[in-house]
C-alpha cells in the first residue's frame, strides 16, 4: 500500500497502483528498473513496462494454449463445455467478419485477427476484476515494487494495438488501392480537386483519428474503471462503515465492469474490422 518511500497516503497509494514496473535507460545511460514514477518518467521512450508486457503476453499465450488444446482434442460427438465456448467464440469472430467486412474483397486474415483481438483484449480487461491489491501485494512480498496487472490500462498497450491496426490499415490501403488510389482517396475527398490541401488535412486527420480513438477508447474506459476500483479499495482502510460500503461498491462496480470489459473488447474488434473493411473498399 505504501509508496516507494513508505508513506501511507491516499495519493501515494493511487500513484503506486498506477505505476508500471518500468525497466529502462536512466539519463546517465545505465539500464535498470525505475524506482518511483519520476525515475520512470526520466527514462523517456527508452523504457519498457515489464508488467504490462509480461501480463499481456502471458494472457495471450494462455488464450492460444486453451484454443490449441481445444482444437487438438476436438470431438464432434462429445464436445466439452470449453470446446462449446471456444466454438462460440470462433463463430462470433467469423460472423462479425461476415456481417461487417466489405464483400468486395476476400481476406482470410480478418476473422482470425478479430478472434485474437476480442479474446486477448477481453483477457487483458478481465484482469481488472482481480481485486486491486492482491497481486501487487504478492509481488511486493516477492521483492517487486510495482505491479500493474491490467495491461489494457497501460496507454502503451492500448495504443500499441491501435498502432498495429493502423499499420494494417496503411498496408491494405496501399495494397488494394495502390499508392495512387490511396493518395487520390486522401486528396480528392470530400470536396474535389480544387480544395486538395483542405481535403488532405481533413482526410489525414480522419485517418489518424482512427487508431487514436481506437486505442484511447479502450485505454480510457479501462483506466477509469481501474481508478474507481482503486478508490473503492481505499475505503477499506477508512473504518468499518466505509469498509462495508466499499465492499458493496466493489461488488456493484465489478458486476457492471463485466459488461464494460466485454463491450470494450467487442468494440475494439468491430472497429478494427470496420477500419480494415474501409481500407479494402474501392471508390
Amino acid at each position: 500500500m505504501a509508496s516507494e518511500n513508505g508513506e501511507l497516503t491516499g495519493a501515494g497509494y493511487i500513484n503506486h497502483h498506477l505505476s508500471n514496473l518500468t525497466y529502462g535507460q536512466l539519463p546517465d545511460g545505465t539500464w535498470s528498473f525505475a524506482h518511483g514514477a519520476e525515475e520512470a518518467a526520466s527514462m523517456g521512450f527508452m523504457a519498457i513496462h515489464v508488467d504490462s508486457m509480461v501480463w499481456a503476453l502471458s494472457l495471450g499465450v494462455i488464450m492460444f494454449w486453451v484454443m490449441r488444446r481445444v482444437a487438438k482434442s476436438f470431438s464432434s460427438d462429445k464436445p466439452s463445455k470449453v470446446q462449446c465456448f471456444v466454438e462460440a467464440l470462433f463463430d462470433m469472430a467469423q460472423d462479425s467478419k461476415d456481417s461487417t467486412f466489405t464483400k468486395q474483397a476476400k481476406n482470410v486474415w480478418i476473422a482470425p485477427m478479430a478472434l485474437t483481438i476480442f479474446v486477448w483484449v477481453f483477457f487483458m480487461n478481465l484482469m481488472d476484476l482481480v481485486p486491486v491489491d492482491w497481486i501487487p501485494e504478492l509481488a511486493k512480498l516477492a521483492g517487486v515494487g510495482y505491479m500493474k496487472i491490467v495491461p489494457s490500462t497501460d496507454v502503451n498497450v492500448a495504443l500499441g494495438m491501435a498502432l498495429a491496426v493502423f499499420i494494417m490499415i496503411l498496408y491494405y490501403s496501399l495494397k488494394i488501392k495502390g499508392p495512387v488510389g490511396f493518395a487520390k482517396e486522401l486528396a480528392l475527398q470530400p470536396f474535389g480537386k480544387y480544395l486538395i490541401p483542405f481535403n488532405l488535412v481533413l482526410e489525414l486527420v480522419g485517418l489518424l483519428a482512427k487508431p487514436l480513438s481506437l486505442g484511447l477508447r479502450l485505454f480510457g474506459n479501462m483506466y477509469a474503471g481501474e481508478l474507481i476500483f482503486i478508490l473503492i479499495a481505499m475505503m477499506y482502510s477508512a473504518g468499518l462503515g466505509l469498509g462495508v460500503l466499499g465492499g458493496v461498491a466493489q461488488l456493484g462496480w465489478s458486476i457492471f465492469h463485466i459488461l464494460v470489459i466485454t463491450l470494450q473488447a467487442y468494440i475494439f474488434m468491430m472497429l478494427t474490422i470496420v477500419y480494415l473493411s474501409q481500407a479494402h473498399e474501392h471508390h
Binding site: 521512450f45 523504457a47 504490462s52 502503451n156 495504443l159 500499441g160 494495438m161 498502432l163
Partner: peptide
Amino acid sequence: NINLTLIGQT
C-alpha cells in the same frame, strides 16, 4: 509515459 512498450505491444 509513452515508451518502448508501445512498440513491444504492436
